[in-house]
């Protein structure tokens, strides 16, 4: 009997190391069992904790979709924007207060379908923001429709016999538009992902990280893949190849998936080149 109250006291003291960055009253979150967004989010929080000294100078912006919920779970300045407009909002934040570290945490549908043009133009201007794209290969929140990132021949609600279209190669698009930091990881590579996000936050210029993540309920179920099977596929088929050419990075799960850091260059950011051109003297 004496052991029992002690145990209860121990349980009350228990707090996850990330609880100080989480709105714990909203946890457990809405993401499905086996969904990888939680892991990507936790990697992002770990990276923020490790690389930002002043947490008052960090802001997270997210768009619409499952991963858009991220902004609601972080206990920092954050904003859940309208569909596809996470990057324009982040651009405004950065221009208004250049001291801020602005992180965009959103999904593939939000960043590359409805928000595709905002993405390429922010990369072209080299806005000093960090974009983390959780790529679950379909529109998860609306019921698993085919997205711009759905692999060739994959089954979704709107492509029941297989997707006839080719997916976007996201790192190539970021590279071609002028991003200065491009990387791709899966949620299985949680440590590499955390380090990569840390690097991206410290990097001046437009940084883009694609995170491959399972969507067991809407994508996995229609492609006969349980969430653990997806992680097994990440483990078996991924090859880490830093500095690989972005044109060789198709997401084709019948072959191998190349992960790593592909681009890390420097050029003038939007604010710097504005100051140089328009604020003479």
């Amino acid at each position: 009997m004496t052991g029992k109250p002690k145990k209860a006291a121990e349980i009350n003291q228990m707090a996850h190391p990330l609880d100080d960055l989480l709105r714990t009253d909203r946890i457990p979150h809405i993401w499905c069992p086996g969904c990888g967004i939680g892991t990507a989010f936790s990697a992002c929080l770990n990276a923020i904790k490790a690389s930002c000294e002043d947490l008052d100078k960090v802001a997270m912006v997210s768009g619409i979709g499952c991963s858009g919920r991220g902004a609601g779970y972080i206990k920092l300045d954050s904003f859940h924007t309208t569909h596809g407009r996470a990057i324009p909002f982040a651009t405004g934040l950065k221009l208004g207060n250049p001291e801020l570290n602005v992180i965009v945490f959103s999904g593939d549908g939000d960043l590359f379908a409805i928000g595709g043009n905002h993405f390429i133009h922010a990369a072209r201007r080299n806005m000093d923001i960090t974009v983390i794209c959780v790529n679950n290969l379909n529109y998860g929140m609306t019921g698993g429709q085919a997205a711009a990132t759905t692999p060739y021949n994959a089954k979704t609600t709107t492509t029941p016999v297989g997707n006839p279209e080719s997916p976007f190669n996201l790192p190539l698009m970021a590279y071609a538009s002028g991003a200065t930091y491009v990387a791709r990881w899966t949620i299985l590579h949680a440590r590499d992902l955390t380090l990569s996000i840390q690097e991206a936050i410290n990097k001046k210029g437009f940084s883009f990280i694609e995170v491959l993540s399972p969507c067991p309920i809407n994508y996995g179920r229609r492609n006969k893949e349980k969430s653990l099977d997806t992680l097994k596929a990440y483990q078996d088929k991924s090859i880490i190849k830093n500095n690989a050419h972005p044109a060789d990075l198709e997401t084709d799960f019948s072959k191998s998936i190349v992960l790593g850091k592909f681009v890390d260059t420097d050029r003038l950011t939007c604010i710097e080149s504005y100051d140089k051109t328009c604020r003479l003297g």
Binding site: H16, P17, I27, P28, C35, G38, S42, N46, I187
Partner: peptide
């Protein structure tokens, strides 16, 4: 800490 890193639910550490 790998369980802590991979848990999507902030439920283990």
């Amino acid at each position: 800490h790998y369980c802590e890193n991979i848990c999507p639910e902030f439920a283990i550490y």
